Simulated scan of single mutants.
Amino acid sequence: MTWLLLAEAGVPEGGLFDLDATLPLMAVQVVVLTYLLNVLFFRPVGKVVEDREGYISTSRADAKEKLAQIQRLEADLAEQLKGARQAAQAAVVEAEQEVDGLYRAAITQAELEANSTKEAARREMDDERNQARSQLQSRVDQLSDQIINRLLTA
């Protein structure tokens, strides 16, 4: 009953703080509102943020792993390219040497053929010269016999 009397009693006017039943009611409302906000909004948002952070960290780790794999592959490809360049350079050098050898062999063969042709021509000219000398010698012998016969007959 005293509560009823106090409730009906007039509210004193003028103080800086009035301590009545509204203060505990407001405190309860703040606690309930905080709990509801936490349950309805902050936990789901926090869960989404944590899931997103987990996804980002997983993606970042995967990206680092893939980057390392790409760098290894790049190094392997660079090594293969270096080997291929060396092999191509060796093939070019070998081809140049082979062409040089074929060129020298062709030159040697051409010189041998030229020398044999020259030797055959020289022998042929010697034979023709010897034939011409023998013909001239027989003709000279005939003419000298004719001259001797005419001089003796005259």
Rank of each mutant, 00 (worst) to 15 (best):
E111K: 11
A114V: 10
N115T: 04
N115D: 11
S116V: 10
S116G: 03
S116D: 12
S116T: 10
S116I: 06
T117R: 09
T117N: 05
K118N: 05
E119W: 04
E119A: 15
A120M: 13
A120V: 15
A120P: 09
A120I: 11
A121R: 02
A121P: 04
A121V: 09
R122K: 05
R122C: 08
R123V: 10
R123F: 05
E124R: 04
M125H: 02
M125Y: 03
M125K: 10
D126N: 02
D127L: 07
R129M: 02
R129C: 05
R129W: 02
N130E: 05
N130A: 09
N130Q: 12
N130H: 04
N130Y: 06
A132W: 12
A132E: 06
A132K: 04
R133Q: 02
R133N: 00
R133D: 01
R133I: 05
S134V: 09
S134A: 13
Q135W: 14
Q135R: 15
Q135F: 14
Q135P: 03
Q137S: 14
Q137A: 08
Q137L: 13
Q137R: 03
S138V: 13
S138Y: 13
S138I: 15
R139K: 15
D141C: 06
D141R: 07
D141F: 06
D141Q: 11
D141T: 12
D141V: 03
Q142K: 13
L143D: 05
L143M: 12
S144L: 14
S144A: 14
D145S: 12
D145H: 10
D145Y: 07
D145F: 05
Q146F: 02
Q146N: 02
Q146M: 08
I147Y: 08
I147D: 08
I147M: 11
I148W: 03
I148S: 07
I148E: 04
N149W: 01
N149D: 04
R150C: 12
R150W: 07
R150T: 14
L151C: 03
L151T: 02
L151H: 04
L151D: 01
L152K: 06
